[in-house]
């Protein structure tokens, strides 16, 4: 089964470049503005879109994405509304892959079976659930694959060659390589090591490998894009949302543009990097 994610990565590869994967927190700073941002992302140069499902206790996220989740929840965001956002987006775009990213509890409480049906119907293509390692695959990963959704797994510098096959076993869509041990928004990674790590993962899989954590600008994106099939940018975009807000934390006329202009910039960086032979 070929999914939107497969198709999009193949198209970028055919252009000889990495794909740009953009992360935005669903409902940040409010559900309407967030939808407007997401709708504007493809035109700005995003190849794939990750939408964060806000959670009160995001254990793997740094302060920027934590704060984005707090803003979204304060604005009344819920998993149901995140799915509604995808439904709205799909009305105008049937090609850009949408991946929901977050933590397991809200999905578990929504009900796994109901969630998978509703997510598929909304036009979701893949899931990244940070606190579900392969050891817990029976919870959501396998049911998601059965429902026709990609389940994208994180591989990290601590995932050694012995463990990689286990991590990759039920992974589909792409592999998300976390370039540093740490939380989102951490230090800039060592590019030489990233290229080596991507090569190491590719020995075990034919899936595209996207690299994230620490991508902050067109320059960092360009460096990463030289050695990967995809570049993920999240914290920088979430910060662009934050700095555009008024003193009460509300969206301003600049909010959508603040994100799209940064995405345009980063997309240009990605496109400058001719992909090296993988």
């Amino acid at each position: 089964m070929t999914t939107r994610i497969d198709t999009r990565f193949a198209a970028c590869a055919a252009e000889g470049r990495a794909a740009l994967v953009t992360f935005i927190m669903g409902g940040d700073p409010d559900p309407e503005t967030s939808l407007a941002i997401i709708k504007a992302l493809p035109k700005a140069g995003a190849d794939l879109i990750e939408i964060g499902m806000p959670f009160t206790d995001p254990m793997a996220d740094g302060p920027a994405i934590q704060a984005a989740g707090v803003r979204a929840l304060a604005a009344g965001m819920s998993l149901k509304k995140t799915l509604a956002t995808v439904t709205e987006f799909r009305k105008g775009d049937d090609a850009t892959p949408i991946i929901l990213m977050g933590y397991y509890n809200p999905i578990y409480i929504y009900g796994v079976d109901k969630f998978l049906i509703d997510a598929k119907a909304a036009g979701v293509d893949g899931l990244i659930v940070v606190d579900l390692p392969p050891e817990e695959d029976s919870e959501l990963c396998k049911p998601a694959l059965d429902a026709g959704l990609n389940f994208i797994r994180l591989a990290t510098p601590t995932t050694d060659d012995k463990r990689l096959p286990k991590v990759l076993q039920n992974t589909s869509g792409f592999v998300y390589y976390v370039s540093v041990t740490g939380i989102t928004g951490s230090a800039i990674p060592d590019y030489s090591k990233v290229t080596g790590a991507v090569a190491r993962i590719k020995k075990h899989t034919t899936l595209p490998v996207a690299v994230g954590f620490g991508v902050k600008s067109a320059e960092t994106a360009e460096q990463i894009a030289k050695g990967a099939d995809g570049v993920v940018v999240g914290t920088a975009l979430v910060e662009a949302v934050r700095t555009s807000l008024d003193t009460h934390g509300k969206a301003t006329a600049k909010t959508v543009d603040a994100v799209t202009s940064l995405v345009q910039d980063i997309a240009a960086g990605v496109r400058r990097a001719r992909k090296q032979a993988a």
């Binding site: 390692p133 601590t158 463990r163 991590v167």
Partner: peptide
């Protein structure tokens, strides 16, 4: 119970 943690922590 179980082991609901990020992949980075799983090997540890």
């Amino acid at each position: 119970g179980g082991r609901f943690v990020a992949e980075t922590l799983m090997p540890l």
